[in-house]
């Protein structure tokens, strides 16, 4: 048990280090453009049809049961099995990165035919469950796509699930003006139905164009 948990932590740290390095590269190449160079490098290096960063380590989908936006228990593994699942951790009072990422995915998804849209689950897990009740989550997610799945519940459970994916989630901090800041890794992990494992990661500065390029591939079941 101890061994397993420390191995997981090491893998998580490695992913974080990789993410940080990629982000630095992106910063160095100019702030006006999005993650283009990162995606291109990874594409060439790994010869993948996807523009997202292809993962060398295929994370298991976390064994996560939380509450969905209708107030019902939601078993992530069971209820997203057999479909591509994009997983993101964030919070609704986040003004910049979270709505930008969800908006980018929403815009890209809407460009697909309905039958292809139905092949892709988008799951948003709250890192601020005290504020993000099922109702708050639903209202917020509806701004992007009415089919997006929102999950909220015990933060310890959420943190453990995120950690198993190399994603950092910390306890939210209430600022002196009453606003909340949550620290969370802003990457999107894409799990594929072939083995229900994560194959591609999208960093927080991914452009809409990258999602528009990759989502049809997921919908058609193209291997990363």
């Amino acid at each position: 048990m101890k061994f397993l948990s420390s191995r997981r932590r090491a893998a998580g740290a490695a992913t974080l280090a990789l993410t940080a390095a990629l982000a630095l590269t992106a910063c160095g190449s100019g702030t006006t453009k999005s993650a283009g160079p990162v995606a291109v490098v990874s594409q060439q290096a790994q010869n993948s049809p996807y523009q997202g960063t292809v993962l060398a380590k295929h994370f298991d989908k976390p064994d996560l049961v939380l509450t969905d936006t209708s107030g019902q228990p939601f078993d992530l593994r069971k209820q997203t099995a057999g479909k591509t699942t994009l997983l993101y951790f964030g919070y609704t009072s986040c003004p910049d990165v979270c709505p930008t990422t969800m908006g980018d995915i929403g815009v890209a998804l809407q460009k697909l035919p309905a039958d292809q849209q139905a092949e892709i689950n988008v799951v948003f897990v709250s890192t601020d469950p005290q504020v993000d009740t099922p109702k708050v989550l639903r209202t917020w997610l509806d701004s992007f796509n009415k089919n997006f799945i929102g999950l909220t519940g015990d933060l310890t459970t959420v943190k453990a699930a995120a950690q198993s994916l190399g994603i950092l989630v910390e306890d939210p901090i209430v600022n002196k003006d009453g606003t909340v800041t949550s620290t969370h890794g802003a990457q999107v992990l894409a799990f594929q139905p072939s083995d229900d494992k994560a194959h591609v990661v999208y960093l927080s500065d991914t452009s809409t164009a990258t999602f528009e390029h990759d989502l049809p591939l997921f919908a058609k079941g193209v291997a990363a």
Binding site: T19, D96, L168, D177, H184
Partner: peptide, 13 residues
């Protein structure tokens, strides 16, 4: 209120 923030990889300050 209007405040200035910087998003980082994992949070904003």
């Amino acid at each position: 209120s209007v405040s200035m923030h910087q998003s980082t990889d994992t949070t904003m300050r």
